[in-house]
Write a protein that binds this DNA or RNA. Structure first.
Lengths: 134, 134, 134, 134
DNA sequence: TTTT
DNA sequence: TTTT
């Protein structure tokens, strides 16, 4: 079991890319406020990387933008790859399975829910991480 | 909002340390199976770092060990610090607020639930990350 | 372990009451959209009862109103009592521990997060359900 | 958004039934310990109804039994129907989308995870609640 | 490297 | 109506 629910704001517009075999991938970062203030009395945030796939990726790219308030539900994943200096790099991200647009979207009626229609689709196993565009 | 629920097994015994002002901190890594198999037909796992504080840390150190099946509930946090080469390092971890021992514990009756009695305690803001022992 | 996260809208203004010994309790109902449409092509909703205690109850009563978009995190509880006809009645409700006001609040800057400062407080065991005002 | 995660024990063996058009449905009740003790110093539990569909229902019926320790992830639903006295009855239940067998199962290696392969399947909208066998 |  |  591996479940994550976050509410926060996009730190920049989503980036939409495609894998070599044409699958859409959108990535963005959510600023999620911490539940307390630090020793300087400031509220800090965690900056959490989100990845979405297929139709959900396209919807996110279409409707979300920097500053959009967004709820994300998904699974925590730690991906690792060898970078171009031959060093192993670990990337932590939340693979979103359900994204809810809460406010500050582009053009779309606010607060629409968008389910990923492929969330439990067996196609998910076919993504070869070596082919990822990021 | 920032909520994480995981079930997995410890990859090694927990490490218990203390901050300079005496607060207990336990860290361990959970291996959490992915919900699908990869292109080689193998089930991979994510290795997720867990941090617990105070009484909960001491309980985890006392009862958990390598291989313990464990449920963790908490908050996803991305901590960053400057390492000794002057480079900024980002550490992703789940700050556990509730840990349930499911099996394979040391000495304790299995499946006992342990709530962190300080979960929402304002004392939490007093931890100075520069003083962390890891 | 018992964790619930909901996003929905209040079906009416919250009701604020006090137990005989003065503890604040607020109740309201959230309409939470289902993730699919029914056979008539309509999107239905679940109407979920929420209970909050103490300072969080007072904040909810102060800032939420009918129609407010709200995220609730808490614990699912099934309370039962004997009604005045001597019949046992079961009430299912979510005991909120964290409520986030997303939009449509009264007077308050939107999207403020409100943590229940007593979430893990041992005082919670002192509430005698026979004394509940509802 | 509507997400529930529970860990508890079955109060009795699961019941497996079929809708008129042959879809498998399994129901059971989970006893989930409360995170505190009551005024008599006893730990109470909530008894939460779980519903599962299709292959997941058949797996639950096959491997779970009274007393099995089980983790359930799903969605909180309030179903209502008219009973045979013409009175509207409300049933609260968790529609499970992912069930993890933790211990005390029948015959199966413990702690196997079982994903519902139809979790986000559009077929889900085709279930006519008037045809439910319970 | 970050959002309001 | 409930489990360990």
């Amino acid at each position: 079991m591996n479940r994550v629910v976050l509410i926060g704001r996009l730190t920049r517009d989503p980036e939409l890319r495609y894998t070599p075999n044409g699958t859409a991938v959108a990535t963005f970062t959510l600023a999620v406020d911490r539940p307390f203030v630090n020793q300087q009395g400031e509220r800090e945030a965690d900056f959490i990387n989100i990845v979405t796939w297929r139709k959900l990726a396209e919807n996110c790219a279409e409707y979300l933008k920097k500053g959009s308030l967004t709820a994300v539900e998904g699974r925590l994943q730690i991906r690792n790859y060898e970078n171009n200096e031959g060093r192993r790099v670990y990337v932590t991200e939340v693979v979103a399975e359900n994204v809810r647009f809460l406010s500050g979207t582009k053009g779309r009626p606010e607060e629409e829910s968008v389910e990923d229609p492929f969330v439990a689709d067996s196609e998910e196993v076919d993504i070869d991480e070596d082919e990822l565009p990021f």
